[in-house]
Amino acid sequence: MASQGTKRSYEQMETDGERQNATEIRASVGKMIGGIGRFYIQMCTELKLSDYEGRLIQNSLTIERMVLSAFDERRNKYLEEHPSAGKDPKKTGGPIYRRVNGKWMRELILYDKEEIRRIWRQANNGDDATAGLTHMMIWHSNLNDATYQRTRALVRTGMDPRMCSLMQGSTLPRRSGAAGAAVKGVGTMVMELVRMIKRGINDRNFWRGENGRKTRIAYERMCNILKGKFQTAAQKAMMDQVRESRNPGNAEFEDLTFLARSALILRGSVAHKSCLPACVYGPAVASGYDFEREGYSLVGIDPFRLLQNSQVYSLIRPNENPAHKSQLVWMACHSAAFEDLRVLSFIKGTKVLPRGKLSTRGVQIASNENMETMESSTLELRSRYWAIRTRSGGNTNQQRASAGQISIQPTFSVQRNLPFDRTTIMAAFNGNTEGRTSDMRTEIIRMMESARPEDVSFQGRGVFELSDEKAASPIVPSFDMSNEGSYFFGDNAEEYDN
């Protein structure tokens, strides 16, 4: 783990906690998980779902989305002020799938948001429990990260689609708070800032007046979040320049895209947490497990152990491969979309394939898809080993990566060399080191050039047997250095459309 220093740990961010010791953190995270579980059980009762239907990941996603929508204050306010045809701002819903006479049927349900809020609060001892809501947002974000390569979004903001390893959390809503900021990748933060800068260039009043003052505060806050992700002084200094700019424009845009590229080699610290679907927490609570009393951590053995003992089902389209669908969801559960496939294969105990080789589309089923041909199958979400999630980018030494994705962002704290394609990355730096950030740029390029592919990161860190909950005997895996390590390699994943 990167030293926490003055930073709060993510469990504290996750639970809005002030400084807590490890036991208190485990208890408050457990409380959050228990609340999600209780809410899910109650919703299944309301909807009269069978046990099997309640364990269907598509039903879980609909129920999670309903509660997130019920608590989305800004959108609710907007919907009330701008009524649109056929949208009731006070209601929320989605597809629920039921097994009827041996076939899967889709039923569109509609609930009062007020009623959903009441059920959620009741499951969370009367609190709004925003930490639990954020947790579900991060699960949705991790699922998107594993399912889609955001080529269009990258290109629109002047970045290269091969930089997708920097895009963790790119679909997280803005209201996801400190826990959300911690899991956002460098590219995601750059993209958010670039969008602001572009608006400022096109709209003279963007930075002016009372609204402009708020915009400015948001801009500086985002700059500080991004600065905190960088691990070298030169990158941090460049972020200070971007933040202090009187009138952010093209120079800042250039600096930010430069920094994003540099992060492929001088990786930023991005938190990883295993956020599971509500249909995993519900049955665990129903079986009598007391998360608050037992304590829970999002970055240790607990999620692995929970998945070892969970039964989750998914709808499967006619030509999809259930094992591939399982891999997709497994990666999402562990926030591992940008991790090295060699490491993932070792931990999972079966070969993890790149996205383009998977015969599976996303987990969600569109409303126009034919239910007649839908089957369902068990998702295999178990693992051979477990490993500690990392909050750091690993040290800054790398190795060759593949054509589709030119770097990785480690999820697990496991000893290995970190793949990246130096030639491709360095070719993108057209040696432009003039301007006010020239000395920093020169320094950053120097550090990137001296990074050695064969150097090892996370020295001495290994994986653990599932029986080793105290992480007492690390097993340090050895990897084939020459092997392909990137998930979005030469990829044809669908595009994420909101």
Rank of each mutant, 00 (worst) to 15 (best):
Q4W: 06
Q4K: 08
G17V: 13
N21D: 12
A22F: 04
E24G: 02
E24K: 04
E24C: 06
R26Y: 04
S28V: 05
V29T: 02
M32P: 03
G37V: 11
Q42R: 09
C44N: 05
T45N: 11
L47F: 10
K48Y: 02
K48D: 08
D51V: 11
G54K: 08
R55M: 07
N59K: 12
L61T: 15
E64S: 04
S69V: 13
S69T: 07
R74F: 07
Y78N: 10
L79E: 02
S84C: 08
A85Q: 11
G86E: 05
D88R: 00
P89D: 07
G93Q: 06
I96P: 01
Y97N: 08
Y97D: 03
N101C: 15
K103M: 12
W104H: 09
R106C: 14
Y111H: 12
Y111M: 11
K113Q: 12
I119M: 13
I119A: 04
N124G: 10
D128S: 06
T130I: 11
A131F: 05
G132F: 05
T134A: 14
H135S: 13
M136V: 15
M137Y: 06
M137Q: 11
W139H: 07
W139M: 10
S141A: 15
L143V: 14
Q149A: 12
T151V: 08
L154Q: 05
V155Y: 05
D160R: 02
R162N: 03
C164E: 01
S165M: 07
S165L: 00
M167Y: 00
S170K: 10
R175K: 15
G180Q: 09
K184Q: 14
K184A: 05
V186C: 06
G187Y: 05
M189P: 01
R195S: 06
R195P: 05
K198L: 11
I201H: 15
N202S: 10
N205E: 03
G209R: 05
N211Y: 13
R213S: 05
R213D: 04
A218F: 15
Y219A: 06
E220S: 05
M222A: 04
M222W: 06
I225Q: 15
K227Q: 13
Q231H: 15
Q231C: 07
A233W: 05
A237Y: 07
M239F: 01
D240W: 03
Q241H: 08
R243G: 08
R246Q: 09
N247L: 15
L256E: 10
L256R: 06
F258E: 13
F258Q: 03
A260G: 14
S262I: 12
L264M: 15
I265L: 13
A271H: 01
C275Q: 02
C279L: 14
C279W: 06
V280F: 12
P283G: 15
F291S: 09
E292A: 05
R293G: 03
G295D: 06
Y296W: 12
S297C: 09
S297V: 03
D302G: 06
R305A: 03
L307V: 13
Q311W: 00
Y313T: 02
I316E: 12
N321E: 02
A323P: 09
K325E: 11
S326P: 00
Q327L: 14
L328Q: 08
V329F: 01
A332M: 04
H334N: 12
S335K: 00
S335Q: 15
A336C: 15
E339W: 04
L341G: 01
F346N: 02
I347W: 05
K348D: 01
G349P: 04
V352A: 07
S359A: 07
T360Q: 06
R361C: 13
N370G: 15
M371R: 04
M374G: 00
S377T: 14
L379R: 01
L379S: 02
Y385T: 09
Y385R: 14
Y385G: 09
W386G: 10
I388F: 03
I388C: 07
T390R: 02
N395H: 15
N397L: 13
Q399D: 11
R400D: 03
A401E: 14
A401S: 15
Q405M: 07
Q409C: 11
S413T: 14
Q415T: 05
D421R: 13
T423Y: 02
I425V: 14
I425L: 07
N430A: 13
G431H: 03
G435R: 07
R436S: 06
M440I: 06
T442R: 01
I444V: 14
R446A: 14
M447V: 09
A451R: 12
P453I: 14
E454Q: 13
D455W: 05
D455K: 06
V456K: 10
R461V: 00
V463Q: 07
V463W: 10
S467E: 09
D468M: 11
D468T: 05
K470G: 05
A472H: 15
P474K: 08
N483L: 05
E484V: 13
G485S: 03
Y487W: 10
Y487F: 11
G490P: 08
G490I: 02
E494Y: 04
